Amino acid sequence: MGIDVSRDKFVTLNEDHQLRLVTCPDRNPALKKYPNLLTYSVYRRTKDGDKERDGNPFIYALKKTKGFRIRSRELVRFNPSFDAILDKIMERVPCGGLVTVPSSYPVAEILARRISRKNGAEIFNSIFKKATVGEVIAGFDQAAVKRQHRAEVKSQLATFAKLDPNELVTLKEMRNKIRPYFNPLSLNTDLLECLPAENLLLVDDLLSTGTTISNAAKLLKASGFNVAGAVCLLSAL
């Protein structure tokens, strides 16, 4: 099962193909292994279907960006596959608490609520905040930069240096190959005492390079918490 996109950019489910987004339970969840984190994605993204798109008009429609839309009655059609896949994920990963990754749109929070309905886990939406330019520069590790990336990383640092140090950092305009050198998150440390120590499950909307979700796990682990894994709505390409 995949999705169609009309000329006026409305997204609909199509059970006759697997273009743009693979939604069938037998091919999901998608699993991505990072050095410090196992990440499960409910739906698998694919480039098949549109050369001019990056394979995620569904997430654009949920966020009502780039002109994409999806009707409420159409979203209901995704529920059977969504629930079946989420049940498979919950069987594989323990969950003592749900920690969402910050975004301009509440997709991660909505996903966390759906998970919480299944396992009763408490949701924590404010543990992370977007890092400022000053925080990113202060935490930058020059020794970690590979030789082939030095020139581009240096250019990015020069761009940061021209910005207000209190401006929030975004990785969206940054080339994928240098994103891992910059941590876009920081912790609200005064809220950490509310978190359970074991089996935290990170929740995000979309995997791209995995930089944000991996850094979220690192921050929590460095603060003494156990992170059991992560769940995203859509996989990396």
Rank of each mutant, 00 (worst) to 15 (best):
Y60G: 07
A61M: 03
K64W: 05
K64Y: 08
T65N: 09
F68W: 02
R69G: 06
R71K: 10
S72G: 07
R77F: 13
R77H: 09
F78A: 01
S81T: 15
S81M: 14
S81C: 11
A84K: 15
I85A: 00
M90N: 13
E91N: 15
V93T: 05
P94R: 06
C95S: 13
C95H: 12
G96P: 03
G97W: 12
V101A: 04
V101F: 06
S103Q: 03
S104G: 08
Y105Q: 11
V107N: 01
A108G: 04
E109T: 03
A112V: 04
R114P: 03
I115G: 06
R117L: 11
E122R: 12
E122T: 13
I123Y: 01
I123V: 02
N125G: 11
N125R: 10
S126P: 03
I127H: 00
F128R: 05
F128L: 07
A131E: 08
T132G: 04
T132D: 00
G134N: 00
G134M: 06
G134H: 11
G134I: 09
V136R: 00
Q142G: 15
A143R: 15
A144I: 09
V145I: 14
R147G: 08
H149C: 05
R150F: 09
A151M: 11
Q156A: 05
L157D: 00
F160W: 06
K162N: 04
D164L: 00
D164I: 04
L171G: 02
M174N: 04
Y181T: 10
F182E: 03
N183L: 03
L185K: 09
S186P: 01
L192Q: 04
L192Y: 06
C194F: 07
A197F: 08
E198L: 06
L201C: 09
L201T: 03
L202H: 05
L202S: 02
L202Y: 07
V203I: 13
D205K: 08
L207F: 10
L207Q: 13
L207T: 14
S208Q: 13
S208R: 11
